[in-house]
Write a protein that binds this DNA or RNA. Structure first.
Lengths: 334, 334
DNA sequence: TTGTAAGCGTTATCAG
DNA sequence: CTGATAACGCTTACAA
């Protein structure tokens, strides 16, 4: 005995009963297919309305296997970097008629795990900023294709979209050196997925360019304005003679500028600052931020293309790992 | 005859066959339930791995009616305002174990409709910045509960979280007037959902305060820095004697500051500017932006609470429509 | 511990 | 044009 509302919502069966037709006919009316008389359609639709009937997405998805959902895991929606990547993912997904479920990890590995857990059940593929080692990721993804953002994947089972960090660092450091700097410090993002590479490349490039700096010139910080500010204070404390700073990202760079000023230094006169990602914010602060601009939307779009590739192959394997190249944008801070 | 991969993915049946057990046993192994011998569990799990089996979320969702998905429709992920709202939604949803599917309309009504279309089929409730009239929305939502953001809902079927625009405008205008301004212009967001109210309240408050301004002192613009800049130029062109500007939001305000300066005016000396939403950006520009700060995360959280309420009542009706109050934050621009 | 049977709510197929 | 009937893939009883 199936009362409407027995388990909450009315089913197609309930509608059929009320309208005095078969489930099939209800289906035809609801999805306005052709083979149905206007009058019956009316009657059915009325029953639908009075019962507040809505088709179950699960039942529908079960029978017509066509809806694709991709899970997006990002670190922090409030960092302007990520929404741009997300916008790229959303646009590319919408273009394909896919849905996107978004999770924000707040840089927490625990949340990252939870997100993987959820999305491995709810999505057909996962794209995101992930921090666990490849093998652990594969285990927790439970067979769902994975596309890593800003990080190369070791196995062919893992797609990836990365950034040419080395090229970016090289371009940035060269710019600073050619502007006459040789005591260049670095503010690195605290170790987290997207944090990889900058520090190492900073050190090797510094070495190549003959700069007398080492690990002691690098200070870790949160990926935020506040983080950048306090790390900058630490750097200036340890190396008061620093004349330029290579920042992990634009947020950090802005914080560095503020801290430098707070300590009485002019930017760029006393200390130059260069950012790394090219947020709009950088154009609006004073002085405008010199930065290595990254096409963030493109990262998201490329990630979805990767998913499409992987999903279309029965091998479930990626064959091509795109790399996005930063572009030096010179403004006034360096 | 069901070959694994007949329709793409292996099913529980395929695994059962390969492991030589029943589907039930596979289910027990996969969801690691208690009543199963370790050895068989091993065997099953191995079959799972070789077949690359993943349970269908649709089949699972069909039988255990517990997954809740909420659809979030925002106008523009790249406007820093929206990610904060979204972050609130995500946090509150995660707290409840709900999933969030995000759509970005790019301020396009066409996309808004498409998003409604999709989400009305894929979500248990929709939260978002919507521009269509209530009745149209209800029609397109096809019975899915709706929570309107920054806009009151007329029917009890519509939840909403709004902002006390009137209070905000009043506080802002009073601040400007008490600072000695009486020729105050306005840059209003181009008519779109969240755009409602500011202009009207600006006009009535101006009238109350005895200011000699009218519609001609209001210029529409995109909700962006660029939009604010060009509208500011227009305003300064039409009313060169303007001494203060009430901006639609902080992005617009920043643009206004830039334009004012570009035309040789000091801010706030020659022309004060006040924003409306309290982005972090406002603290970082020069001069720091005076603004009416809005708790954007809270908007998202309240929206999810509304959804929970609506979903829990069988009436499907909202009974309480929260209002978020702006808070005047005085910095240097006004 | 394991298997069997009965749904979950839809759509597709094929008669009528 | 309409209605049985059979999937769709999984879980929850209930038997064995």
């Amino acid at each position: 005995m199936s009362r409407p509302g027995r388990r909450g919502r009315a089913t197609i069966e309930d509608v059929a009963k009320l309208a005095g037709v078969s489930r099939q006919t209800v289906s035809r009316a609801v999805n306005d297919m052709a083979e149905i008389t206007p009058s019956t359609k009316q009657r059915v639709l009325e029953a639908v309305r009075t019962l507040g009937y809505r088709p179950s997405r699960f039942a529908r998805g079960l029978v017509k296997q066509d809806t694709t959902t991709i899970g997006l895991i990002i670190s922090d929606l409030v960092n302007p970097f990520f929404p741009e990547v997300a916008a790229g993912v959303l646009a590319a997904a919408e273009h394909r008629g896919w849905h996107v479920v978004v999770c924000d990890t707040q840089y927490s590995q625990e949340r990252e795990l939870a997100a993987l857990e959820v999305l491995s059940h709810q999505a057909d593929a996962i794209v995101g900023y992930l921090s666990y080692p490849d093998d652990e990721l594969e285990r927790h993804a439970g067979g769902v294709p994975l596309v890593l953002l800003e990080r190369p994947g070791s196995s062919p089972r893992l797609g990836s979209v990365s950034i040419d960090i080395e090229g970016g660092v090289l371009a940035g450091m060269r710019h600073l050196v050619s502007s006459g700097h040789n005591r260049i410090g670095m503010l690195d993002g605290a170790p987290y997925p997207s944090a990889n590479g900058r520090r190492q490349h900073y050190l090797s490039v510094s070495h190549e360019l003959g700069l007398a700096v080492d690990d002691g010139w690098v200070f870790d910080c949160d990926h935020s304005v506040e983080g950048g500010a306090s790390a900058m204070e630490a750097l200036l404390g340890a190396h008061p003679d620093v004349t330029a700073v290579f920042a992990f990202n634009d947020l950090v760079a802005v914080g560095a500028v503020q801290a430098a000023r707070g300590l009485g230094r002019q930017v760029p006169a006393d200390c130059a600052v260069i950012g790394f990602d090219g947020l709009q914010l950088g154009e609006l602060v004073d002085p405008p931020l010199t930065t290595l601009h990254i096409d963030k939307r493109r990262i998201g779009e490329l990630a979805v293309e990767q998913v499409a590739l992987i999903l279309s192959e029965q091998t479930n394997a990626a064959t091509h790992w795109p790399v996005v190249r930063p572009r030096l944008v010179i403004r006034r801070s360096a």
